[in-house]
């Protein structure tokens, strides 16, 4: 009997971990690191009586780590035929359909990490006042969704060197603007509009990436 792969099984076939395990692993690492950073800066801030600067440092570390996690998750999984495992994955029963499921599963992990890590940050903010508010989380979530689409599009660049330069640039810009983003007080109408576009762009960039990959990588 032919059983078709679920998204989680496809992710496990390619990465050795299920969707749940990958999500827990990445979110756990991210959250543990953010808690540690918050604790360190909170202690320093309280000691010096400068608690208003805590959010700047914490948000910088949190956002950069989040982007690194996404880069790690979405930046890999190309598996050209020449790399180890490339031929095995192509020969499995579902072939490209299995690959598609794996990429979709990994995208799901990325989104789950976003939601869980921002939720975690919100809870952390309640426990340790680090000077952020709910509006900031909404906006950062929108920015992160754009980042996911951006990383998807970067994977289509034939020049790997240029793609890496753009990844580093994006990471640097995230670091520079993270403090400002974290202190936004109110969600404006255009933020919601940008959010709606971001929500459309994520699946669109995913589908374009898969189509491009099949044509230029999988079958060549």
């Amino acid at each position: 009997m032919n059983k078709t792969l679920t998204l989680s099984q496809a992710v496990k076939l390619y990465t050795g971990s299920s969707i749940g395990r990958l999500t827990v692993k990445f979110t756990g690492l991210l959250f543990a690191q953010t808690c540690l950073t918050t604790l360190i800066f909170a202690v320093i801030g309280w000691a010096e009586g400068k608690t208003d600067r805590i959010s700047d440092f914490v948000s910088l570390i949190f956002l950069v780590s989040l982007m690194l996690a996404h880069m790690f998750l979405l930046g890999g999984h190309l598996f050209p035929r020449s790399v180890p495992g490339g031929k095995f994955f192509r020969s499995t029963k579902e072939g490209f359909a299995g690959y598609q499921k794996m990429r979709t599963g990994v995208l799901l992990v990325s989104i789950l990490i976003l939601v869980l890590s921002f939720g975690g940050m919100y809870l952390l903010n309640m426990a340790v006042p680090i000077g952020t508010n709910a509006a900031a989380y909404v906006i950062l979530l929108i920015v992160s969704l754009y980042m996911i689409s951006f990383l998807n599009f970067l994977q289509m660049l034939p020049n790997e060197g240029l793609a890496n330069i753009l990844r580093i640039t994006a990471l640097t810009l995230t670091g520079i603007f993270s403090a400002g983003l974290f202190t936004v007080q109110r969600v404006e109408w255009w933020h919601w509009l940008a959010g709606a576009v971001a929500l459309l762009l994520v699946p669109l960039s995913h589908l374009i990436l898969l189509r491009h990959y099949r044509k230029y990588f999988w079958n060549t």
């Binding site: 009997m1 032919n2 792969l5 496809a10 390619y14 020969s91 499995t92 029963k93 299995g98």
Partner: peptide, 8 residues
């Protein structure tokens, strides 16, 4: 583990 998922 992977072979089990990749082939029936």
């Amino acid at each position: 583990d992977s072979m089990e998922l990749g082939f029936d």
